[in-house]
Design a protein around this nucleic acid. Structure first.
Lengths: 286, 286
DNA sequence: CCGATTTGTTTCGTCAGGAGAAACGCAGTT
DNA sequence: AACTGCGTTTCTCCTGACGAAACAAATCGG
């Protein structure tokens, strides 16, 4: 059952793979079939159409029979779908069902819906809601103006943790190990303005914990600015990120006071509905 | 690694579990850890909040260490989330991400969006879009009237295959083995009007293949009527179901000709966009 | 306050389930 | 026909996942 490490390396062509594993002696690694199964699913989700078994095996640096066993079990379970014509594999309906169930358990999306549209209408910009998952944000909802060229993200997307406003807020309130995992790895720059210097990031995280606000000007795409604020539940449990994205020209840099006030008001109100009054206690909104 | 069958049986308290396995000698069963992993995820998705390890193990009829190993690997992968306070497990963000990716690969939702609203506006009823998965329908989208008491389903839901309009259409065009799997199992009735007689169902499936239309009056809930039509791509590949739901009183039984015409026109137009002109070839729409 | 119970977690020896090499059948090309 | 690619299957061997039992850390109850 030993895995051929050389073969693995050969297949590690494409980059990304955010989770750069930690320094030494990662002791526990869990059930191996589950890990490979989800590596397969990840690859399938990155692909844009059906993928053949051989391609998939090559991309993963695994042998065909192994990948085949996993795929065929998952096919039986409805987790992946196999095109009967050419045998290509793609993600299956069960994943969609599970994903929707997961969303429901977050339950934040439903509470947040009215606040998102309020934020959109007040700012006349696209409003975004995310939840943190292991120190990185996952976009839950995106409401934009219709009938207008709009900047938008898609539910399920994961903005970069280190150089996006949502990402840094997620990092700021993540636990130490998750933060270390992200900041310990390579921090890629998406534009010349992306912040990749660790000390600089840590400083901003500290500022976020005090001001409950972060922006990212031209960091993920040139000409795009995003502003976000954290959401809390109960005493001070961090549960999400709300914010707006738009062109840097429209949003303005430095941020207009009115925009900050609006964002903080919405974040405070939504947090209040979750039984957390920290925005008021800190005097960030009156 | 042998599984304790007696223990399994003891845990089979709850019913449902649609897939009644076939007659004899199911030869291949696939990787066992994957099967248990997805059984765990299914249970978690059925629960409404976080579930403790012991409860989960009991519900599945498995031993704690086994469930624990699976859960802890999936936690590491971000597939499940563990509440740090009480140790309860729930579905994680990665599933949501994968689910959205799966949805994207269906890609039908995006094409269908304008047709759905058109159908809703023309019929003044909630419009539904589903895709078939192993002979059962999975709801992809549901557009309803705002500001009005509305009948609606949710994305990710799976209407019963044998006694819903979407379900029977999915069955009608499913392959023989999937149909057998569904119809071979127990067919539960949700209302006194639910059709559960196999011969009767087969007759309707045959009618669907000719008329490209099916309705289910009071079958899933009393007072609710649904009408659906199949969607095709290319020559005659079945790819989805589109339809409307509303109260039986509003929709009418027998169906008004105008409603049938509208539904068929929309289904034909959407199929045509997918490069299939079968509705026109059959003379179902002019 | 302290035993009693129930959590989630860990250890450990054992054996069957999953691994890899190779072959298979079947397309479409040359 | 020989060749190439594919998805699938078979086989044997060894290791990684299994279950029993012990563990630690909360929670409970009086």
């Amino acid at each position: 059952m030993v895995k051929n490490k050389a073969a693995q390396r050969s297949g590690a062509a494409q980059a990304v793979k955010s989770g750069a594993q930690a320094v030494k002696s990662e002791p526990a690694d869990g059930l191996q079939s589950l890990r490979t199964a989800f590596r397969i699913l990840d690859k399938l989700s990155q692909a844009h159409g059906p993928v053949g078994l051989s391609d998939l095996a090559a991309m993963l640096g695994e042998l065909k029979p192994r990948v085949y066993r996993h795929l065929s079990t998952m096919r039986r379970l409805g987790v992946v779908f196999q095109d009967p014509r050419n045998g290509g594999y793609s993600l299956g309906g069960k994943l969609f069902t599970l994903g929707e169930a997961a969303l429901e358990q977050f339950d934040l999306r439903f509470l947040a819906a009215p606040y998102l549209t309020r934020l959109r209408d007040a700012t006349r910009q696209t409003a975004l809601l995310s939840v943190p998952g292991n120190g990185e944000p996952i976009v839950l909802a995106c409401v934009e103006y219709r009938n207008r060229l709009s900047i938008s993200s898609r539910p399920g997307n994961r903005p970069p943790p280190h150089c996006s406003s949502q990402g840094r807020i997620a990092l700021a309130f993540a636990d130490e190990t998750a933060r270390e995992r992200v900041l310990g790895g390579r921090l890629t720059a998406f534009t010349p303005h992306s912040i990749t210097d660790r000390a600089q990031i840590e400083a901003r995280l500290q500022a976020i914990r005090e001001r409950f606000l972060e922006q990212a000007v031209d960091e993920v795409r040139l000409g795009i600015n995003a502003v976000s604020a954290p959401l809390f539940r109960d005493a001070d449990e961090f549960v999400g990120i709300i914010g707006v994205v738009g062109t840097t020209a429209e949003i303005g840099d430095p941020l207009p006071r009115a925009l900050i006030a609006t964002l903080h008001e919405v974040a405070a109100a939504l947090s209040a509905e979750l039984n957390c009054r920290i925005y008021y206690e800190r005097g960030l909104v009156k």
